[in-house]
């Protein structure tokens, strides 16, 4: 019963945060310097088009009324029309979302696989030379600007060695029958490699350091000592007994990492001209395409908020002590 109330209040909190972020977004885009209509109306539209849009978003009404129209439109998935593409923002954003998600998840899977293995290894080799060198090196990868790492990889592997293409998702002019054909093509994977590598090098530090410090905690526990006394091989002790128990907090951190990654994608997508949400946000903001910028921002925020929720729920699910308290 307690678990259900805990989950219920966490869901309510999520709704509250969503509402607050949506409201902040509304205020940011309406109260910015310049024409308050600018958030929806392109000055290049004809007067009739402008009037139609004014009515649709209630821009001739007082601010509080506009706010409720905005909320109503949002609930129906209506984010307005892009100035640049002249198509609904929602359509555009949903078309870009898969690219961003593929980039995010493939890089995080690589980062977590490496981080978990390397983290356990470093915990096992605790106090050795390898460990003394590895920990500062890992901290240094966290200190890199992601886009700079992308630039270096581009300069070396694309422009100097010519092994990988310089950006985008497909060769110029290539056409595919639908999304599935594109995502499974060899071209796509080749284009995906450098951005994924960039993000993976940057992200592996979190699971690695987390895994290492959890392992160090778990290795002190009685059941690990017991396994050692039983005479099991060090490998069995580390992998079968310690690593399995140290994995839990690393698993929940994956959801948080998705949320962080999707914000950080903005720069890496720009470096590699990867057609995702982040690059679209940057382009929309530079081109004063406010409806599109607002929509892309909102979509990124929704992913972040959902991932925070999933992390908390996972944590409660995997470690019942959290809800029982």
């Amino acid at each position: 019963m307690k678990a259900i109330t805990a989950i219920g209040s966490r869901l309510l909190q999520t709704l509250f945060v969503l509402w607050a972020v949506v409201t902040i977004l509304f205020l940011m885009f309406r109260l910015m310097p310049g024409n308050p209509m600018a958030a929806y109306i392109d000055p290049n539209f004809t007067p009739e088009q402008q009037d139609a849009l004014m009515a649709r978003f209630g821009l001739d009404r007082p601010l509080w009324e506009q706010y409720f129209i905005y909320l109503g439109n949002l609930l129906q998935g209506d984010l307005g029309e892009s100035f640049f593409y002249r198509t609904p923002v929602t359509e555009r954003i949903l078309a870009l979302l898969p690219n961003t998600l593929i980039l995010t998840f493939s890089s995080l899977i690589v980062a977590y696989a490496f981080g978990i293995l390397a983290g356990s290894y470093l915990a096992w080799k605790r106090g050795s030379r390898v460990e003394q060198v590895a920990v500062p090196v890992v901290l240094t990868t966290r200190a890199m600007p992601e886009f700079w790492l992308g630039m270096i990889l581009l300069a070396v592997f694309s422009f100097t060695l010519g092994w990988f293409p310089a950006g985008g998702t497909r060769p110029p002019g290539a056409e595919y029958d639908g999304y599935w054909a594109l995502y499974t093509s060899r071209d796509f994977l080749v284009h995906l490699t450098l951005p994924v590598l960039t993000l993976a090098i940057y992200s592996q530090g979190l699971p690695l350091l987390l895994m290492r410090s959890n392992m160090l905690d778990v290795m002190k526990e009685d059941f690990v000592t017991m396994a050692r006394i039983k005479g099991l091989s060090p490998f069995t002790v580390v992998i079968r007994h310690a690593a399995r128990n140290a994995l839990l907090p690393v698993t929940t951190s994956f959801a948080i990492a998705v949320g962080y990654q999707i914000q950080g994608n903005v720069v890496v997508e720009t470096v590699f001209s990867w057609p995702g949400l982040g690059r679209e946000l940057v382009r929309a903001v530079s081109a004063s395409d406010y409806p599109l910028a607002q929509g892309a921002f909102l979509m990124i925020a929704v992913v972040v908020i959902l991932m925070n929720l999933i992390a908390d729920l996972l944590y409660a699910l995997l470690d019942p002590r959290v809800t029982r308290e």
């Binding site: 607050a20 902040i24 310097p33 914000q263 903005v266 530079s286 892309a296 921002f297 925020a301």
Partner: peptide, 22 residues
């Protein structure tokens, strides 16, 4: 703490971009 929850819901880099543009 509810304010902190909201701050955790705002994607930081996109927020800076929009702020810097305005």
């Amino acid at each position: 703490m509810r304010l902190a929850d909201v701050a955790f819901g705002i994607p930081f880099l996109p927020f800076v971009i929009v702020l810097a543009a305005f």
